[in-house]
């Protein structure tokens, strides 16, 4: 079914996806220094899986949605840090296998994409409002 103001809910779905990506990045950044002992899994990086809301062939879709969240490598990076209270007998601890600069880049991409959706939303609303002024 094609709703009357479809572009508004479509951009809303896009904002939802990028909000989830920002949330996932926040979780990753918060745990970028979470160290675990070698007999436990490392913090696993969060990946958001986006998916298109298809409406079948020949028609515009309904935007995007979060299809799920996947976890990264649980192996992590083994770091030699014998002074760490969680270090094993060889002096090794597990760091999460992710890089802070990657996370910051993802954050900027997600933020800009969210802003792009907001811009489309505002433009669509302005267009509809202009349409309502026809013949006034």
């Amino acid at each position: 079914m094609s709703a009357l103001f479809n572009s508004l809910s479509i951009t809303g779905s896009g904002m939802g996806v990028y909000k989830t990506w920002i949330d996932a990045t926040a979780d990753n950044v918060a745990n970028v220094n979470t160290v675990t002992s070698t007999d436990e899994p490392a913090f696993q990086q969060r990946f958001v899986l986006a998916s298109a809301n298809e409406n079948g062939a020949g028609s515009i879709g309904n935007g995007a949605r979060v299809a799920g969240v996947q976890f990264g490598d649980a192996e992590g990076r083994l770091v030699y840090d014998p002074a760490h209270p969680l270090a094993d007998e060889n002096g090794m601890v597990r760091h999460p296998d992710m890089v802070l600069s990657d996370q910051m880049t993802n954050l900027i991409i997600a933020q800009r994409a969210y802003q792009a959706n907001v811009t489309v939303f505002e433009r669509a609303r302005d267009a509809y409002l202009r349409g309502l002024e026809i013949g006034r």
Binding site: L4, F5, L8, S9, T11, G12, M15, G16, K19, F121, R125, Y128, L129, L132
Partner: peptide
């Protein structure tokens, strides 16, 4: 999600005006 509210409020505003 704040966008849920903004989308719904704007759609209602436009529908009312229409």
């Amino acid at each position: 999600a704040i966008e849920d509210y903004m989308v719904m409020a704007t759609e209602t505003q436009l529908a009312t005006q229409l």
